[in-house]
């Protein structure tokens, strides 16, 4: 008999497949290829570099949005169908439900990374594309995990979407926000307090600015990719977020 975690993961992935999410990803990839071709016709030099950077950036952003929308809508539907109540009523620990959902969404993130990276193989070195895909999978898995925590906690679609997208923006732009706070005229008590708060938030969120970078594909060299850094960051924050999600789910009254 299959482990309950794997069963839930399989059904989460099946829901994505039947919901034509993979087709949406294929359509996005097709659009990105068209975009690259179009841009290639307008550039004067460095055509490949421009094509690959725009394609990679577009695919990263769109995959993040697809994952956030899917995770939030899927769990929201579970709440509406009373599937969550059903899962919690059977003799299965809640952490297994959480892990099952998380693994399912992580597999969907893997599918997205594989589909999107196939289009980039024609524009950059294969080994670099593989690192890019690995990094995208890590980023999407973290995004899926955060979205899962938000929707399970807030149970409200619009609020969860805004919170997930906001958290993603914070994870991507945190160094820039922090550097703005470190300006020469920012020594007031309020600014110092804000800076401390930003530093605290920074410790609670992964630094996604070290993850997927279009510049890797532009340069076509894997030498500059700090794989150890983003893998370690990924493992640490997956553990942290899973614990947050499990604890939150355990105390939840259904």
């Amino acid at each position: 008999m299959q482990h309950p975690v794997l069963t839930i993961a399989r059904f989460s992935l099946l829901e994505a497949v039947r919901g034509k999410i993979l087709w949406i990803m294929a359509a996005l990839l097709l659009f990105a290829v068209f975009l690259a071709f179009f841009i290639g016709q307008t550039t004067l030099t460095e055509t490949r570099e421009t094509q690959v950077a725009l394609m990679a950036g577009f695919l990263r952003l769109s995959s993040v949005l697809v994952i956030i929308f899917f995770v939030v809508s899927s769990i929201s539907r579970d709440f509406q169908d009373k599937s969550v109540e059903l899962l919690f009523s059977i003799s299965m620990p809640r952490y297994q439900v959480f892990l099952g959902k998380f693994f399912g969404f992580s597999l969907l993130a893997l599918s997205a990374a594989i589909i999107f990276s196939t289009g980039l193989v024609f524009y950059s070195d294969v080994s670099v594309v593989l690192f890019w895909a690995l990094s995208l999978w890590c980023e999407l898995t973290l995004v899926a995990l955060i979205s899962l925590i938000f929707i399970l906690s807030l149970e409200h679609v619009a609020m969860s979407l805004v919170a997930s997208i906001g958290a993603y923006a914070l994870m991507r732009f945190m160094p820039a926000i922090q550097s703005m706070g470190d300006g020469p005229f920012q020594d007031s008590l309020f600014n110092q307090l804000m800076n401390k708060m930003l530093d605290l938030i920074d410790l609670l969120l992964p630094r996604l600015d070290h993850f997927v970078q279009s510049s890797w594909l532009v340069k076509g060299s894997a030498a500059e990719i700090d794989v150890i850094y983003f893998l370690l960051e990924f493992v640490l924050f997956v553990c942290l977020f899973v614990l947050v999600g499990v604890i939150d789910l355990k105390r939840k009254a259904i």
Binding site: E49, A53, L54, S214, V218
Partner: peptide
């Protein structure tokens, strides 16, 4: 400040996005 924000996330994407716009 805007440059710092633009470069913080994915500098290659922002750079290659702005080039055709300027051109």
């Amino acid at each position: 400040t805007t440059q710092v924000i633009m470069q913080a996330s994915d500098v290659a994407f922002v750079y290659r996005f702005l080039l055709p716009w300027l051109q």
